[in-house]
Design a binder for these strands. Sequence first.
DNA 1: TCAAATTGTTTGACTATCAAACAATAATCA
DNA 2: TGATTATTGTTTGATAGTCAAACAATTTGA
Lengths: 169, 169
Amino acid sequence: MRKTGVSVRKTEPLPAENNARDRAGERRSLSLGRLPGLLGYTLRRAQLRVFQDFAASMDGEGLTPGQIGALLLIKANRGLSQSDLGVALGIDRSSVVPLIDRLQARDLVRRAAHASDRRAHALELSEAGEAALIRLLSRLEAHERRIAAHLSAGERRTLMDLLARVADG
Amino acid sequence: MRKTGVSVRKTEPLPAENNARDRAGERRSLSLGRLPGLLGYTLRRAQLRVFQDFAASMDGEGLTPGQIGALLLIKANRGLSQSDLGVALGIDRSSVVPLIDRLQARDLVRRAAHASDRRAHALELSEAGEAALIRLLSRLEAHERRIAAHLSAGERRTLMDLLARVADG
DNA sequence: TCAAATTGTTTGACTATCAAACAATAATCA
DNA sequence: TGATTATTGTTTGATAGTCAAACAATTTGA
């Protein structure tokens, strides 16, 4: 059978409404309606693209985005508690448990004794964790270069500024 | 007990590495390390904020973001198949089934007979679906205004352009 | 005509998430 | 000090979203 597949148009004929099939069996490209004009949609599309490149980029290290985030935050805040990590990652502290479990099982992170609170764990990178982080940062830099490949330095700065203003309200 | 909580700094002291607690029990704000300088991180942060506003905005209608996307695409492509919808939404066609199930159970969408392919369903909005979409579009406009509230018209255009270039590689 | 592909569906697995409860521990206050 | 209240990490259970594989019905292409 012929491989057909549906393409998705980025530019829009007007009005943005049509039939997906005009004649018997003849398939046209899909319209996205008003979606392309929406900031929310464009933002989601860019984020999806970047996330996919990120995930693929870190795939070689066998680490998920959440695990990478944890490693970066532990590096920047040696000794933080699991609860604090949850706040920083925006996830529940009960979700931190299996996350750290996996990193600890791979000997990348230690649950050290906390100096002043016997309930808490002080999270630290192991030597292997430090080494993994170095490899990871180099991948991260390559990733950043790729996603901004079509932007000038000034455009990148502008984009960062505008995004930060959207993010911070 | 006093409510403590951890704050998350947006600007960074250098170098971006410190102890989460300096003295016994004294908690400092968390460092984000190199994260704030990354385009990927800033993009994710903005997208998260926008997504939360979007979800809250559509909450009153009792519809999830995925369902909204489906309604918009069906409106713009009356009669499209479930497989095509899956491609447009970026999800597997087996995931389209429960999505349409719910919309059909609420009488917003019909699985009509397909004119030329007896395997396929031609998706259509019901009258109630059309009405819901109108309310939805008005919420969507309000949402778009909110998320761009801190941008001028020109800045919004610039942001859209830069994001599209990131998204399309 | 007949083999290969596609459609919608079901089933099963997997991940990520939260909420609620728990014991151990810490902090606050009377 | 002693009692109450809060927090920490954990376990358990629920929910949601996703995919892969298989299936019958149907369509397509050779």
